[in-house]
């Protein structure tokens, strides 16, 4: 029994039309998805540029040069300075990376190369769970535990802190938050290293540790570095947890880790409940600076990664 011929033909035409429709139809959500990046850049820049334009704010507009070079965040009514905040942010992120990277790499080595499957699976789950903890919870933890720890450390050094709220707390919290990212990516990089190379090293009489450090880590270098870049990117953008333990110092830059500090993100969140007008819009300007800092840092680090890669 053949299908009635005319029926097939109708359906075929419909199918073909539907196919073309689907193709165009699928393009729309794709373009939409791709457009958000553009929207972000456009609209945030638009709002962020406004405080500097006399056409928007008249006499109350902010002086751009003072903004970019200032060492005090806010002097009423319209003097804002962001320079020291950028320095503080980079300082705090750099320190947290300094702390987190060794711990992450060692943990990755441990999980990937030094433990049998069930144990390494357990520890990997531990790291994945840490990665899943939202930043607000780290903020609560930071305010509740980390600040106490910092208070104790401060007394050991004979320093004063504002109840533990300090740059050091920020560094510790950030280190905890980027450790899972760097660890997970390092695990992937380390696992991808050629087993034969490692076996060769052992066969030449090297110890396990020598092999791990001289062969495995060296080969996994670029993957690990990629993880570090990702982690640093996240640290730069981390807002909630940081704003809870940083303290929002008004001036700077300040390199004393026991003093309060301020990051670009904490500036954006501080006092958001009661703001309108210029104080609200200036946060968009800070946002623009944040985006620029992240992009520039990424470019610089990626360039460094390429150069290191050349030497392997």
């Amino acid at each position: 029994m053949k299908f009635p011929i005319f029926k097939i033909w109708d359906v075929k035409k419909k199918n073909r039309f539907f196919d073309k429709l689907t193709y165009t139809g699928l393009l729309i959500p794709t373009i939409l998805s791709a457009s958000f990046v553009v929207l972000i850049i456009l609209f945030i820049t638009e709002r962020g540029v406004a405080p500097f334009l006399p056409s928007q704010y008249g006499d109350l507009s902010v002086n751009f040069l003072r903004f970019m070079t200032g060492t005090t965040w806010y002097i009423s009514p319209n003097i804002y300075g962001i320079f020291f905040i950028v320095i503080n942010t980079l300082y705090v992120v750099f320190l947290s990376a300094l702390l987190a990277v060794p711990v992450s790499v060692f943990t990755a080595l441990f999980i990937a190369k030094m433990t049998p499957k069930p144990i390494s699976g357990f520890f990997q789950t531990v790291v994945e769970l840490l990665a899943a903890i939202p930043s607000i919870v780290f903020g609560v933890f930071g305010l509740g535990v980390i600040t106490d720890v910092v208070k104790k450390i401060a007394t050991v050094f004979g320093m004063q802190t504002a109840g533990g709220i300090s740059a050091l707390s920020t560094v510790l919290v950030l280190a905890i938050m980027i450790m899972p990212t760097v660890t997970l990516l390092s695990i992937t990089a380390i696992k991808a290293v050629n087993r034969d190379m490692e076996n060769n090293s052992l066969a030449l009489g090297a110890t396990k540790i020598q092999t791990l450090f001289k062969v495995t880590l060296v080969s996994a270098k670029s993957g690990i570095f990629a993880g570090i870049i990702l982690g640093i990117g996240r640290a730069l953008g981390e807002a909630t947890a940081v704003s809870m333990v940083a303290g929002n110092a008004g001036t700077g830059p300040d390199f004393n880790i026991f003093n309060t500090t301020r990051t670009l993100t904490s500036t954006m969140l501080l006092g958001l409940k009661e703001t309108t007008g210029l104080d609200y819009d200036i946060r968009f300007s800070v946002g623009v600076v944040l985006i620029i800092v992240i992009i520039v840092t990424n470019l610089l680090l990626n360039a460094a990664k390429k150069r290191i890669g050349k030497f392997s």
Binding site: M1, F3, K7, D10, V11, K12, N15
Partner: peptide, 15 residues
Amino acid sequence: GPRCQGIKDRKVLQE
């Protein structure tokens, strides 16, 4: 295959 060509009738498909 038949469904893609538009056959929906349950009985026809069973056959």
